[in-house]
Each structure stands twice: as C-alpha cells, then as structure tokens.
Design a binder for these strands. Structure first.
Lengths: 213, 213
DNA sequence: CAGACACCATACCAGTCGGTATTATATCGC
DNA sequence: GCGATATAATACCGACTGGTATGGTGTCTG
C-alpha cells in the first residue's frame, strides 16, 4: 500500500534530502525531548524536511522513533557489543559501565540514554513505544546475564556468584546514570559512580578502565 | 486576583469534594503517566471534579503537579527523613535503599518514583517542571551527602571515605531502581539490587534490613 | 427573607496535536 | 519531447490540548 523508496532503480523525482542525515537529526530531538515531548514540528524543523516527506520516508512518528532508536543503538551504544565480547568478566563489567558513563555525557549530545529516558512514563497513546523500550532494556539485561553466566562457567566469576542479580544491578546503575546525566551530572561524577559500583562486584575490576582490551 | 479558599469562615456554597482526596487521585495519575502524559481530562476524571473546580482549588496543571509532588514526598517518601535520622551510616544506607525499593514496588500503586519518572525529558513547555524535579533530586543527594559527612566525622564511616561519591552512587542506584520498577521489576529483584549495592559501601551494612531501629 | 458569596456544570476559546489530500515540480526510461 | 513516477510544498483535517467565560445552584451572613 505505502509507496516505498525503491532501492536500485531511480524512477521519478529523486529525494532532495539524505534519509540517514535526517534520521540523525530526528534522533537528537527524540533523545532530548522524549517520544511524546517531540512534536512533528520539532522533528521536521530539525530534519529540514516537510511532514509529507517525513511520512513518505519513515512511515509515521512511531516508526520514525523506532528507526531513531536503532540508529542510537548501532552508533551511540555500539560499544555495548564489544564490551560484552571482552575476554573476562572484569573487563566486561568495566567496559560496559564506563562506556555507558561516557555515552551519557558525550560532548555536544543530549544527556542520558534514549532507551532509558525516551518514554519512561507516558499517556495510553504512546504505550506501544514505552513497551518497546521496556522490551529492549530487558533484552540488554538478559544479554549481560548470559555473558556473566558464561564467565561463571569459564571460571573468571566465582561459582557462587549470581549472574542474574549482578546483571540487574549493573543495568540499574546504568539506568540510574542515565537519570543522573539528564539531571546534569558530569562525566567525572559518573566515573566515580562506576568506580563505586565496581567495588560491589565479586571480583576485582580495577580502579581504572582499559586495563585489558 | 485569584479567588482562594478562605480558611476559617465558610461564606458561600461549600466545596463538594475533599481537596486532599482529589489531590491523592491526581498524584496517582501523574505518577503513572508523568506530567505531560497526564491530560486534564485524565486528571479531572480521576479526581471526580470538573476543570473549573480544579483551577479554583489548585491553580493550574503545573501547580497541581507540584502539590501532588509534595504529597508524594510527605507520604510515599516519608521514610527518607527517618532513614537519614538512623543512628549510624550503615543503617542510614540500608534503610534508605530498602525503603526506595519498597516504595517503588508498593502493591496497588504505580511503579517507580514520581520524582524520577515524572518529567525526565519533555517539551520546552514543561521545562519548569523538569527543572523542579532536577532541583529536588539534587537536594536529596545533597542531604544524603551531609548525613554521610557527619557519619565520617562521627567515625562510623572511614576517614578516607568520599561522602559525595557515595551519595551520588546511592542516589544513582535509587533512580535506577525507579526505572527498573517502571519496567516491571518486582520487589525481590530490587532487594537483590540493594544487597549488591550495599557491598560497594566502605562499611558492612549487613545482608538483611532493619538490624537496628 | 435579601443579598452576598463561592461553588458546580456547560459550553466554549485559541492553539497545537499527529496525520493527509491536493497540487506543482523535477527526474527518469523511452 | 513524452508519459510515468515520485518527490516537495501548501493547505488542510478532526481531535485534543490547557485554560476560561457564563449562568445556574446551594449555603452562608445579616
């Protein structure tokens, strides 16, 4: 039904804006104001396009948000995948938490996480978006739990450690840092929070980051 | 200018609703949907009053939110004051964190904290509300820092402990738990998070709550 | 009772919300 | 050049936003 942007061939008038650039602009607006706080006027002005162009290229506001969320994940949160791929539990935890702290206080970017702050509470109309964010946050926690369970099997986490509880704690700290960043906390403060959090781990994660990979 | 409810005397037709009961109802709506997500229709329906009654009794939506926030503080967060008044640092930290965990997962209440989730991000129109929440969260952290500094002076916290860093960590965990609760985490999960967080403290806070006071 | 007063209910306000129909325009294959 | 196609721009839609003017109603004081 909906006319999509045909991939290879170029029939008809070519698009005058770059879809990815405009999506980046939309991401910043959602990131700063949240899904409900960002109006179509805010979005189209920042993206430099008109409403019909937005709907033709991205579907609707909700689909645009999800696309922006994917963009946020693959760029701003790109470090998560590599952090989980770190060789041992200590470096996983260290890279993950310092990575979040840095991401949430990046120069020239909105503070905090789109995934945490984008739609924490909302009206009924936006429930689908809120649920999608909940789903993704849970998946993040589950992925960390799986990685810690693997570490336990491999012996670099004590046998009596609780991967589920540790993952819940780490993600709680990460989400708390997102709130702190949105409240104006600076990077130094979040680094101190990470140092404190790492002391709660059943292994020594070191006081400084990047000790290994 | 605005016609207020005169205190002692009762001139004119008496109000047909209870101001405090209606405020409680408004609190639940704001708590669940946030400041922007709660419409006047949501509010007046839950409060059982009409718009003109709302404006006559509370001013406007923003003032109603602040009144609801005060109500939230004095009832749901009433434990904070007594937690800070605990005799030693260990019981302060324990009572504070378990208190937050319980408050955020109270049966029959919205999940999480109005102070954290109520307006984390928003449109420009709601910036005053967001700033007020930021202000109050900072004040909470500052109050905890002062209490921990006192504990350091009194000797039940090591001399080399960092009250500011500890307070930032504890409030980060609390705010993170608010996000987790809003995502559906249950009380057991948050209690496990608290147990883990307490391990990061430079003193033994015990594995169970309410050891003293 | 007379009158003042403040409440309640209805109906309404301008402005904005997300979303679209319509029309004009630019680029393609042929 | 010509038709087909897909863009861009404008103007518009009904619904809803926070907020209010108006008129009827009930309770008080004198």
């Amino acid at each position: 039904m909906r006319r999509g942007h045909r991939e290879g061939t170029t029939v008809g008038r070519p698009r005058e804006f770059d879809v990815d650039d405009a999506l980046q602009a939309a991401l910043r607006v959602f990131w700063k104001k949240g899904f409900e706080g960002a109006s179509l006027t805010d979005l189209t002005e920042a993206m430099g396009i008109t409403r019909p162009s937005l709907y033709a290229a991205y579907g609707n506001k909700e689909q645009l948000f999800v696309k922006a969320l994917d963009c946020f994940q693959s760029t701003c949160l790109g470090f998560v995948e590599s952090a989980l791929a770190s060789p041992d539990a200590a470096s996983v935890l260290r890279n993950l938490l310092y990575g979040y702290a840095d991401c949430y206080t990046a120069q020239g970017e909105p503070r905090g996480s789109l995934k945490t702050n984008g739609a924490l509470v909302c009206s009924e109309a936006s429930e689908p978006v809120r649920c999608e964010l909940v789903r993704r946050r849970r998946e993040d926690e589950a992925a960390l739990e799986r990685r810690l369970e693997r570490a336990r099997q491999e012996g670099d986490l004590p046998k009596d450690a609780d991967p589920a509880a540790l993952a819940a704690f780490v993600m709680t700290v990460a989400q708390g840092m997102s709130v702190q960043a949105a409240s104006g906390a600076d990077r130094e403060t979040l680094h101190a929070v990470v140092r404190t959090a790492l002391r709660a781990m059943p292994i020594s994660c070191g006081d400084h980051r990047c000790v290994t990979t």
